[in-house]
């Protein structure tokens, strides 16, 4: 798989993250971690940044190796 992730694809990925973000504290509690509201905000901001970085990295890598999907979004 070498295709770039389009902006539409990114939008859908971020939409899929919403349930995780919304219930992040519940999720953490399942693993015995209780988060304060401040910690929660930092954690989900980090999560979103991480996904954005991962997508950017993926697209940079795909952009240098792909020969058929260079159009992007």
């Amino acid at each position: 798989m070498s295709g770039r992730i389009s902006r539409a694809g990114l939008l859908v990925i971020l939409a899929f993250l919403v349930p995780v973000i919304v219930e992040f504290r519940t999720l953490a509690a399942l693993f015995g971690v209780s988060l304060s509201v401040g910690q929660y905000l930092v954690a989900v901001t980090g999560l979103v940044m991480a996904v954005l970085l991962a997508v950017t990295a993926w697209n940079l890598r795909a952009g240098t190796t792909a020969d058929d999907h260079t159009g992007g979004a």
Binding site: M1, G3, I5, S6, A8, G9, L11, V12, A15, A73
Partner: peptide, 24 residues
């Protein structure tokens, strides 16, 4: 042109609101 166990998901027409709406 999608391949792989899950990466075929990326080959779906996510830019088409008709597709994305129905899939969601």
């Amino acid at each position: 042109g999608g391949e792989g166990y899950l990466s075929w998901l990326g080959a779906l027409p996510w830019r088409d609101p008709a597709f994305t709406g129905m899939a969601l």
